[in-house]
Design a protein around this nucleic acid. Structure first.
Lengths: 360, 360
DNA sequence: CGGGCACTTTATAACGCTACAAAAGGACGG
DNA sequence: CCGTCCTTTTGTAGCGTTATAAAGTGCCCG
């Protein structure tokens, strides 16, 4: 059976309250008693039962993070960061996947209200933050991402418009003039897509370049394969671009494939900028230049804000903007940097040379 | 304030027990009463408090998954699958990252014992399953991965040796004769690495090929960049291979870069097989042939076994082997398949042609 | 018409913990 | 020597839920 306060108390010859006091680090416990209790705790291997504690105190030390899909590298990174920061501050992390669907988000939020979590951080996708906030009863809630938030709620995100403008400026500085946008949803673009397109558009304007609807390439599935197919089809239909701003790195990876498959060199013919700066972007060929949100700051600020709200639910809603920067790698190098030697070189010569010591 | 059973009972004019019976779907409740109670539940928005329930029943409906690092695509996929299957069976998922360190694994296991979780699924990395099982008190535990397990514990994994043999056979069938292994740890290889190398070695033997220590390329950091650096350095030092079995897809991605950077075509000069079949492997250039563990089965079987053990802790330990298959893509195509047209073709011609409608 | 029986409903006592307040031991000045 | 104050320790009463068993219903049958 599980070791309880009562067991420890009996062992140490004190009351349960004294043991509880020791466990929680209450000041006024004599060193002698504390020692005996500590010893009993160690001997019996006592660990406080969080359900009991939660029932007595009303708080559980459990936070929840709800993201659309962990398989997307950005959300995995987010979960990683948030797991680390919450653990560092003494909280457990309950993880929920919403699947990016309206139903999933509703269900998750409703179920999380069941009193085991002290607070929820959610990255909405299908529902708007406003709708979600309406479903909430009394659990403190922080939103991640770009959705318009209800005024009384907290939200943490980067400035998508500015980031997109910067990414676009980077492409322009590379001399690109026909810059496309790849990867938004077909039909109504999601909030992040819309904001990034807005930044793309105003960036074009600022650079004195025309906006051309034809350079917006939507994708069906929100993954690399969907982006590859979409861009491929559009290229085959005659799309002509020399730069590409991608909604996310998955789209960028798909773009690399679609482009290279059609004999277009990156960045030679088309420079590509991704978004999210996923780890694997450093290892593609060519490596991806990408907009890097400060995910560490997102996790930390989200936790800050959530804890504050848990302390004082009446606090006013805050819109927190965290930093971002552009990770410059090969797919859209720094302006003026020497061109990287494209792999492949003179294939015949290479084969000749290697043929010497080859078995078959 | 939170809505409790008592509130609902008062509203519906019944006792708390009746409400509890309705909530839990107890049979012998008259339709009339059930209706009234349901109505009261809806009106008040009642949700059962899991802490209270947990205290009363001794079970919390929360499972924990502990993985080294969510940023590694394989573990993200695993967490995704496990989140889905546990939700499907009515469990919440507590997620912990061990960081892949001995301390992390110890801490996580110790803290999880605090009575909020009904069971733990852990993918050990630094500590062996035997050590971890020793730390356990009474929480049901299931191990994922290759570590030797204590006889009384459960474990779910694929057959790494066989899978490696198959991957090697695939390379051999492509006519490769100097096949390297890339990506194990420097010094003592981890269990998965050791097993995969064992399969690699016996696969070579089976094919009548010599084993050459020089073809084992360890990497420092366990990511794509580490693999790229390691393989790059070894190639520059004269390594000559025409096939590469990689410890995981991160290593394979790094290998693609190291190879292409040195003018070696994949699969023309070197065929590459990865491991884990991560989603992005379908979108690299070339796309990755890879050993695909049946992660869905891993998640489901792990949950099966865990639930059984929660029911009956005395049950004998089981070693469960789930399926795997080789996803054949471009980096090591099917034997006899026509060579894919390598991107890049005649660059001069391409430029000429595109020059016509180019702005600057 | 009373006894048995199936069906409903309910009182009570935990589960493990903490908040609160009150009690028990000293120390110390008046 | 008593009252006061501080430190240390301890009862008691929940927190929201369920297990258990007992108490009410109504109905059929002897």
């Amino acid at each position: 059976m599980r070791v309880t306060l009562r067991d420890v108390a009996a062992r140490a010859g004190v009351s349960v309250m004294t043991v509880s006091n020791v466990v929680r680090g209450y000041q006024h416990v004599s060193p002698a008693t504390r020692g005996r209790v500590q010893a009993a705790i160690e001997e019996l291997g006592y660990r406080p039962n969080l359900s009991g504690r939660s029932l007595a105190t009303g708080r559980s030390s459990v936070l929840a993070l709800a993201v659309p899909d962990l398989r997307r590298p950005y959300f995995a990174e987010l979960a990683h960061v948030f797991a680390r920061v919450s653990t560092a501050r003494g909280y457990r992390l309950l993880l929920e996947e919403t699947g990016g669907t309206a139903d999933g988000e509703r269900t998750v939020l409703r179920d999380l209200e069941a009193g085991v979590v002290d607070g929820v951080v959610i990255h909405p996708q299908a529902l708007t933050a406003v709708e979600l906030d309406g479903l909430r009863r009394d659990t403190p809630l922080v939103f991640l991402g770009e959705d318009p938030r209800p005024p009384q709620a907290d939200q943490v995100a980067i400035d998508n418009v500015v980031a997109a403008q910067e990414a676009l400026a980077h492409l322009v500085a590379l001399g690109r003039r026909r810059i496309g946008f790849l990867g938004h949803e077909i039909g109504a673009p999601s909030c992040p897509s819309a904001l990034r397109i807005e930044g793309y558009r105003s960036g074009l304007e600022r650079a004195g370049l025309p906006f051309d609807e034809a350079l917006l390439v939507a994708r069906g599935e929100g993954d690399a394969i969907g982006a590859e197919a979409a861009l491929g089809a559009t290229l085959d239909a005659g799309l002509d671009v020399d730069g590409l701003l991608c909604r996310d790195d998955l789209a960028a990876v798909g773009a690399l494939r679609a482009l290279q498959w059609r004999g277009l060199a990156v960045p030679g013919d088309v420079a590509v900028v991704g978004w999210d700066a996923i780890d694997l972007g450093a290892s593609t060929v060519p490596s991806l230049t990408s907009v890097a949100p400060d995910t560490r700051a997102i996790g930390e600020r989200a936790l800050d804000v959530l804890l504050e709200r848990m302390d004082d639910p009446g606090i006013a809603g805050r819109q927190i903007t965290v930093g971002h920067h552009i990770v410059v790698r090969e797919s859209a190098p720094a302006p003026g940097s020497p061109p990287v030697s494209p792999p492949g070189g003179d294939r015949a010569e290479r084969l000749r040379e290697r043929g010497k010591d080859r078995v078959g």
